[in-house]
């Protein structure tokens, strides 16, 4: 079971305020699809301007990543640099 962690604002708008969601998925793509089934519009909400951190590592291409059984997946604002 992967654990999804969300910031308060994002949760308020996309997951009816739920900041922690358990999802049965072994790839990040499957996780996003499950989340979208449960919270319609979730996939669109993370389409632009959102980066994904899986077990502490940030991935700009989350859809290619596999998950461990106890993985933790955070969605955070995309990062930039100077």
């Amino acid at each position: 079971m992967a654990t999804v962690l969300l910031q308060p604002e994002f949760a308020r708008r996309n997951t009816a305020g739920q900041r922690l969601v358990e999802v049965d998925a072994d790839t990040c793509q499957a996780l996003i699809e499950r989340m979208d089934e449960r919270f319609p519009g979730f996939a669109d909400a993370i389409a632009t301007g959102v980066a994904v951190a899986i077990d502490g590592q940030i991935y700009p291409d989350p859809l290619q990543q596999d998950l461990r059984p106890d993985s933790e997946v955070c969605f955070l604002p995309a990062l930039e640099g100077g």
Binding site: L5, A53, D55, G56, I58, E72, F75, L76, P77
Partner: peptide, 13 residues
């Protein structure tokens, strides 16, 4: 340290 929960979400690598 490694594992510290960051305010912006993930645990530190």
């Amino acid at each position: 340290k490694e594992g510290t929960r960051a305010l912006y979400g993930p645990k530190m690598p």
